[in-house]
Design a protein around this nucleic acid. Structure first.
Lengths: 225, 225
DNA sequence: CCTCCAGAAAAACGAGTGTTTAAAACATCG
DNA sequence: CGATGTTTTAAACACTCGTTTTTCTGGAGG
């Protein structure tokens, strides 16, 4: 291996540690010692810790966005200009999300990283992800728009983010929840079980009745701090 | 003020900085200098940084759990042994969540802190919160159980956590989402607007049709990493 | 052979961390 | 007043951090 596997070892170790303990709580010395690699290797190969973090994300998101584009191309070929049902769109996204990390490590790490990125301070990672991979998401949202013609744009925007919260929150805290569920209801949940459970919930949530219109838009700001 | 307001100044400053940048990214020197207080004051009054973090949470969660208990007492008095409708239960929780921080600072900080606690490394904060305030949550869940008799216990467990994810994720990332929504759909969303939007979504999600039963429980573990 | 140079390794740098210590300031009360 | 206990302050401690510098290694090419 000419292009030394040092790079790979660093990435493999870093993504696990980041997912377990967060970015700030994981030092380069943690990573390099566990990867049995010299400390300076990170700065030599990646330039900085921040660049390493982005490289960890890129290794998941590059194939994801590529595959998701391909999957949407297929849907376009299959449906032409017909409206694609919401269930099919959600199913496609779920399949793609499940496919990418299945090839390598585990979905858990991927989801945990996404959760961390979104809950991260100042959201500079969120911004990076949005800039780098925002176009696939935009494309997806446009298809969802056509699949839910009864929904006002703003309402759809919020509901999509509600559901994003559901998925990321659940899958990123999966281990803890899995333990509780196993203890309380002695049942072993796999990620695929969870996706099965998520499907009807997400569909119902997206198709929920519209909220009553605002009676008179923000009249008193008394408690809206 | 005999019981010096140093303690209060530290807490007021700490909660804002924690909410903005996370726990690890906020140093005691950040806090004490912004609060115009001596560095050693934190360790003198709280003992350690970890204890300060818990104190910040306690200042929100103590009144919350007390008020939520009172609210549930009221519901019990009003409904006796009759089943309390799911909408009423959700409404009660929403009201309590909105009430507590409205008295002091802002809901945003409270939600951001909750989001951080849940996405935190190893979840030692999540454990602390669960141990300290788990009983109110348990009581609430029991009422939800009686309000949703058609739902298997495990299914209800997961759906409640799905909805917890929706709320915490949305409200803790509120600022960023608010900006996007304002730009794209030029509409000003207040927290109360969001709660109005959340209500039908959460109710529909909880009442979603049951997922199809597992065909044959985890036969192949091929991709369940 | 020697040169060259990407890569690995060891060591040091300077800045920033949570925490502790010891002295000073302050308040309370006999 | 002087004594007592609490709070504030400045300084130091002992690390850990990300990054940089320097040295060493080992194979490719003239």
């Amino acid at each position: 291996m000419a292009q030394s596997d040092t790079v790979t070892r660093i990435l493999d170790t870093a993504e696990v540690l980041f997912a377990e303990r967060g970015f700030a709580e994981t030092s380069l010395r943690n990573i390099t010692s566990k990867a049995r690699v010299n400390l300076a290797a990170v700065n030599y190969h990646f330039g900085s810790k921040k660049a390493l973090i982005q490289a960890v994300f890129a290794r998941y998101l590059d194939p994801f966005s590529q595959r998701f584009h391909e999957a949407l191309d297929e849907l376009h070929a299959r449906y032409g200009d017909d409206e694609i049902p919401l269930e099919v769109l959600l199913e496609t996204m779920a399949t793609t999300v499940l496919t990418v990390p299945a090839e390598r490590n585990s979905l858990k790490v991927f989801m945990r990283l996404l959760g961390l990125a979104y809950s991260q301070a100042q959201g500079h990672l969120r911004r990076y992800i949005h800039e780098q991979y925002g176009d696939v998401f935009t494309r997806f949202v446009e298809l969802v728009r056509r699949a839910t013609p009864g929904l006002p744009d703003a309402e759809r925007f919020w509901r999509l983010h509600f559901m994003l919260g559901t998925v990321i929150f659940t899958l990123s805290g999966l281990d803890a929840l899995r333990d509780i569920a196993a203890k309380e209801y002695n049942e072993q949940v796999s990620v695929r079980d969870l996706v099965r459970r998520l499907r009807p919930v997400v569909v119902s949530a997206m198709n929920a009745p519209l909220p009553p219109a605002l009676e008179e838009a923000h009249h008193d700001h008394a408690h809206s701090g």
